[in-house]
Design a binder for these strands. Structure first.
Lengths: 143, 143
DNA sequence: CTTGCAAATGCAATAGTATTGCGTTTATAA
DNA sequence: TTATAAACGCAATACTATTGCATTTGCAAG
């Protein structure tokens, strides 16, 4: 990760009152380079600087999620996946149920949908987030 | 559960080549009456006829999901929730992140969204399903 | 109604995911 | 440089879900 990028994320951490630790920086670095949702287990396996404790990893992930730097994703794999949250650029995923291929979907009409959902609701006054994932078949698997 | 309803689901099971067992019927009955997504643990706790083995419950749930009678839902509770799938009436949920209140959202523009997602995709040829849940604050919790 | 058998169940064991408590280390502000 | 709250690492454990196998059962064929 280039120094400028590291500094960018370090600033984001400090702004949230979080300490800048080697573990958190490597975690961000990993997520930046991989650019695909990853489970805690996968992240641990890819760890470069020695090893990271599972608990520390989960706590670091929690912290980054709270700070709005990372988001959780459920791709129906039986565990939570994590990915870097590019500010201002919110996206979802297309998942191939055969081979697991993942493609990003960036054209989500999020605000409109939330408006629609709120309008039809009798109990809710505000919506902050939504999850949206598509499941189907990719070219390669559609014989 | 009225007899006619029981027979309806029994038929659905038989049509899928599945046996009609007391456990599966009580499971469907529970889900029918509760009408809110429930975890396997919650279902087990609500079991009337004696007790159901955890493994049997998970296998029954899997079978019903495969048969298109039940669907899995991820409400970010750290586990899978299950709910009855009313045929032809697909819906999503609004979840209050404070108190856990759940409200159904029925006006999902599913087909349109899938079309949109497919159009923007370079790797996918078909989409079969999607997950969509909203997270926000309900009236009661919005002081 | 009986019977045969594949499907379903129950139990024990275990895998996988995630969290808690606590003593030690470390980032950072004073 | 130092004090301290935050973060870390280790051990233990909780929770969610699955596998293997012996037993039971739904149900179709006779």
């Amino acid at each position: 990760m280039p120094r400028s990028n590291t500094e960018k994320y370090a600033d984001m951490l400090r702004k949230q009152g979080l300490k800048v630790t080697p573990q958190r920086l490597e975690l961000i670095s990993l997520l930046t380079r991989l650019k695909e949702p990853m489970s805690a287990h996968e992240i641990k396996a890819k760890w470069k600087q020695g090893d990271i404790d599972t608990v520390t990893l989960y706590r670091a992930l929690d912290a980054l999620v709270d700070a709005g730097i990372v988001q959780r994703v459920d791709l129906q794999h039986g565990h939570t996946d994590y990915e870097l949250l590019v500010p201002g650029e919110h996206h979802h995923h297309l998942v191939c149920t055969d081979c697991g291929t993942i493609e990003d979907f960036v054209g989500c009409p999020g605000k409109n949908m939330e408006k629609l959902a709120l309008k039809s609701s009798s109990q809710f006054v505000s919506l902050r987030e939504h999850s949206l994932e598509f499941f189907g078949t990719c070219k390669t698997c559609a014989v």
